[in-house]
C-alpha cells in the first residue's frame, strides 16, 4: 500500500462525508425556505367537507365568516326585470330549480343548479356547479372566480352586474 493509495482512501472518505453533509444541508435549506411561507394559510380545506370544516373552526374559536350580502343589478334576463337589484345572502345558489336564491325558471339556458355565490375571506366568489352552458365573468368562462365590483356575471341568458 503506497502513499497514493492511502491518499485516495482519505480523499474518498472526505468526499463521502462532504456529499452527505451537502445533501442534508440542501434538505434543511429547502425545508426552511418552505416553512417560511407556511403562515399564509390556505383558504379552505381540501379534504374536510363543509360541515366538518365549520365544526373545526367552531372548536378553535374561529369566528364563522358571517353570511355576507352580495349585491347584483340585473342587466338583462328572460326571468328577471332589468334594473332590479338583488341582494343575495351567501352562500346562494343560482339556477333554474325552485328553492334557489335566485329563481331563473324562465331562463332556458341556465342549469338547475348553475352557480354558487359564496363569500370567502378575500371577497365574494362565484363557482360554477358543473352547468351545461357554463358560467361567464366579463365574457370569459370560469370554474371559480373572485368578483370585482362592476364585473358582469352571465348565467344562461341572464346577465348580472356585481355591485360593491
Amino acid at each position: 500500500m503506497n502513499v497514493l493509495a492511502l491518499a485516495t482512501e482519505e480523499a474518498l472518505l472526505a468526499l463521502k462525508i462532504g456529499f452527505l453533509v451537502l445533501l442534508y444541508l440542501f434538505i434543511v435549506y429547502i425545508v426552511r425556505s418552505a416553512t417560511r411561507d407556511m403562515s399564509e394559510a390556505p383558504q379552505e380545506s381540501i379534504i374536510l367537507g363543509a360541515k366538518e370544516a365549520a365544526a373545526l373552526r367552531a372548536e378553535h374559536g374561529i369566528v364563522e365568516h358571517t353570511p355576507a350580502v352580495a349585491r347584483f343589478v340585473v342587466l338583462e334576463s328572460p326571468a328577471l326585470d332589468t334594473g332590479r337589484a338583488l341582494e343575495l345572502t351567501t352562500p346562494a345558489v343560482v339556477g333554474r330549480e325552485a328553492g334557489n336564491g335566485v329563481p331563473l325558471d324562465a331562463d332556458e339556458f341556465a342549469s338547475g343548479r348553475h352557480a354558487r355565490i359564496d363569500s370567502r375571506t378575500d371577497g365574494i366568489w362565484v363557482e360554477d356547479l358543473g352547468s351545461t352552458n357554463g358560467t361567464f365573468v366579463n365574457g370569459g368562462r370560469i370554474s371559480a372566480e373572485r368578483l370585482e365590483p362592476g364585473d358582469v356575471l352571465r348565467i344562461g341568458q341572464t346577465e348580472l352586474v356585481f355591485e360593491p
Binding site: 485516495t8 480523499a11 474518498l12 468526499l15 456529499f19
Partner: peptide, 29 residues
C-alpha cells in the same frame, strides 16, 4: 432566487457524487 440557490447546491451535490465515483474507479481525480 430560492430556486437558483437550491440548484447551485444540487449542482455541488452532483459534482461531489460524480467525483467520488470516478476517484473510486480510477484512483485519481
Amino acid at each position: 432566487t430560492r430556486e437558483l440557490v437550491g440548484l447551485v447546491l444540487a449542482g455541488l451535490i452532483a459534482g461531489t457524487a460524480l467525483a467520488t465515483v470516478t476517484l473510486a474507479r480510477d484512483a485519481e481525480l
